[in-house]
């Protein structure tokens, strides 16, 4: 009996060993392939960043946008590889990429200085000394620990305003997360491609935003109009509000009523570039396919949302 068990056990262990070897061989190859490609791409981007100085002002915008896209691709390449890369290699590669990103951002700030401080013009007092934080996006948990007031909002934000026209430009919001909170009677225009937006407690506001690469989260809004494009949209506790949206996955509502939907129709110079930057698929818009979390079980249409009739859709000036 014991002998039989032992035999079986040995066999099992042998099997496991064999499988492990099978798995490891191709992983080694994959790792090498990854390192070769990544370091090549990093070298090339670095070279292109350093030759930025020789370009004209008009060429620079395209040049930097192009480099940003390439850097994002490299980041995507890395993130796809995290599943097989050893963690040491991941952190090495993450470090190189964030260095590169800083280098790119510094170069951009150096050669296109007009935008350098625009970001903080609204709330200049809070901006000082935090620039580095906004530049490197990853692996900087230590740097961040200096912020010890957890309930203050992110740097990119409009909070507690009434009756204002507010806007931010691409240099302020591209690839950042934006917060809007406690606004009344405001019109907000966000030109650019943020990574995410959090919206809380707005009343009688009109919010325009360029393509958001990630999700938009909206809570407790009333009598507003949102013109948004994003990957995911979640709407909570909101009423009497219209949404002109481009959503590549799905929009949902929860605890909301009298919300209406129409296709995204904002346009401004440069929006095509921002779509590219966001990675959103322009051809894929599920603006009329809304899930209501308070209306799941039934086949009938939720009474909480409807579509804006085509003839009632508004047009917006850029």
């Amino acid at each position: 009996m014991t002998e039989r068990l032992q035999k079986r056990d040995d066999k099992r262990k042998l099997n496991i060993e064999n499988k492990k070897e099978d798995r490891e061989a191709p992983i080694r190859e994959k790792c090498e392939h990854f390192h070769d490609n990544l370091s090549k791409e990093i070298d090339e981007i670095e070279r292109d960043v350093s030759r930025s100085s020789s370009l004209t002002k008009t060429e620079l915008i395209d040049h930097f946008d192009g480099l940003t896209v390439r850097l994002q691709k490299a980041q995507k390449f890395l993130s796809e590889a995290t599943l097989f890369l050893p963690s040491y290699d991941i952190s090495k590669a993450t470090e190189s990429l964030s260095k590169l990103q800083n280098m790119l951002q510094d170069k951009r700030n150096e050669l296109m200085p007009k935008k350098k401080f625009a970001f903080k013009s609204k709330k200049a007092s809070e901006g000082d000394g935090k620039k580095t934080k906004n530049l490197s996006t990853k692996d900087d948990a230590h740097k961040k620990s200096t912020k010890n007031e957890p309930c203050i909002l992110a740097d990119c934000k409009f909070v507690d305003e009434d009756g204002k026209n507010l806007s931010m430009d691409p240099s302020q919001i591209n690839q950042k997360d934006v917060a809007l909170a406690r606004l009344k009677h405001c019109v907000v225009k966000l030109y650019g491609s943020p990574s995410a937006i959090h919206v809380n407690e707005l009343e009688d506001c009109k919010i325009f935003c360029g393509p958001v690469s990630g999700s938009i989260f909206i809570r407790e809004c009333k009598n507003c109009v949102f013109i948004l494009s994003c990957q995911q949209l979640r709407i909570h506790t909101t009423e009497f509000t219209n949404f002109y949206i481009h959503v590549t996955s799905k929009a949902i509502i929860e605890d909301s009523h009298d919300v209406q939907f129409a296709p995204y129709n904002w346009n401004y110079p440069g929006i095509a570039e921002h779509f590219k930057l966001s990675g959103l698929d322009k051809e894929r818009n599920n603006w009329d396919d809304i899930d209501d979390f308070n209306w799941l079980a039934v086949d009938a249409h939720s009474p909480n949302w409807s579509l804006v009739a085509p003839e009632q859709r508004k047009n917006w000036d850029p």
Partner: peptide
């Protein structure tokens, strides 16, 4: 999560909150 967002809180902040 979402440490890729520049406005995210650090894990230290989250741990406290």
């Amino acid at each position: 999560n979402k440490q890729d967002l520049p406005g995210s809180l650090s894990s230290e902040d989250i741990r406290k909150t």
